[in-house]
Design a protein around this nucleic acid. Sequence first.
RNA 1: GUGGCUGUAGCUCAAUGGCAGAGCACUUGACUGUGGAUCAAGGGGUUGUGGGUUCGACCCCCAUCAGCCACCCCA
Length: 424
Amino acid sequence: MKNIIQTVKGTREFYPEEMALRKWLYGKISQVSQSFGYQEYDGPFLESIELYAAKSGEELVKEQSFVFPDRGGNLITLRPELTPSLARMVAQRQNQLVYPLRWWSFGPFWRYEKPQKGRTREFFQWNIDLIGVDSPEGDAELVAIAAEFFKAVGLTPSEVKILVNDRRLMDSQISKLGIEKTEDKKKVLSIIDRRDKLSANDWDSYVLESGFTTTQLNGLKDVLNNKDLYKTSETVMRFFAALNALGVEQYVSYDPRVVRGLDYYTGIVFEARDAGESSRAILGGGRYDNLVGDVGGNPLTGVGFAMGDVVMPLILEQFGKLPALNLNPAEVLVTVFDADCQAYSLAIAAELRQAGINVNTYPEAVKIGKQFKYADRVGARYVIVAGPDERDAKIIQVKDLQSGEQNTVPIKEAVSVLQKMIHK
RNA sequence: GUGGCUGUAGCUCAAUGGCAGAGCACUUGACUGUGGAUCAAGGGGUUGUGGGUUCGACCCCCAUCAGCCACCCCA
């Protein structure tokens, strides 16, 4: 045990239990994405480092990416995010694609970060984007997709909330405080982003230390406490009207403190958080204006979000919403009574499989009790016993481990009887 | 990248410088053609790894690896 080579730091292994959960999650994501008419796509897992140099935040590429030289000396990156690949894919076929473009993806990503709970170095991420539209209704569609996803996995509006703001709204408010320079505005956004991470007093001093006046500080506080700020924006009002019409308004609320860290958001921004103590960010996204420009296309607007796969199981566990998943694909186990009867058992199993039933056989003729225990442990519900008596009489015994009932079934009716039992 | 906590059986944890243990899990039996429940017995450890201090180290010191927590950043 001790000299087994360790897994790479921050990676996960998917034993059947975890794999079943991953597939379940993928299924929900796929179902919700497709219910809104989005098409599945994917990009390469390996990209050249130049792709990220243009657009992504400096830190993401320089400090949080796995980068290595290939045998030819080119720097290769394990993709830390999908958006640049998406931008290129759109740019390459910009004039052939049909807009609005609705695409979604679920695949692996790598970031060289310090692993801890809810954060690994290798993770899966759901990306979904609506490209080529700039309307509040388009923004609302993406938020509605997030809400429908929560609904699909069984999370209620009291357990998860999607918090929304609009950068344009914030921008005009910040201007009103006499902060006009782009650089200063960026600084304010990052200050707002830290609002929850500091105590009220510490945050106040942080604002002042960053070079802003007391008047600006107080003005900023007023803005951040104004839950009705969105009512001053016709666009955001339309956005909320659309959410109402889509029937997901209970999951969504306006919060002027949400600004998101990334520079490239230009309109609506949103993030989902759980209502528990940890209050983790579950997903985040927003509107961007210049998706394709950086990789050489004509500017296209879009709105999208990303959700990692690591936090969701933690949230589901916290609220007791983890699904009970069946790990054993075989509903039936055919026991092997003794060496002489093995062929009879194998033939029964083969016949059931021909009929589309998933069947385990016990691979050796050990004590029947052990085989029953095995069936119980692996979660096979029906056990077939076919010993010498059964073989000679052309029958089998079928036991339902859940009810404990056992019936004698003529071999000719085995398929139909089991199909009925399995599908009832 | 910075700071802190932790690491003992498959799992959850005891043992605070003097013989490395318990519960659960596992194997076998009670039950010679039937799982779960009960009872009994049994197997299982280089105490994360490598050094050091000591007559003696799970325990103290150093390093290292991993996990967790707070920063940073974000999914």
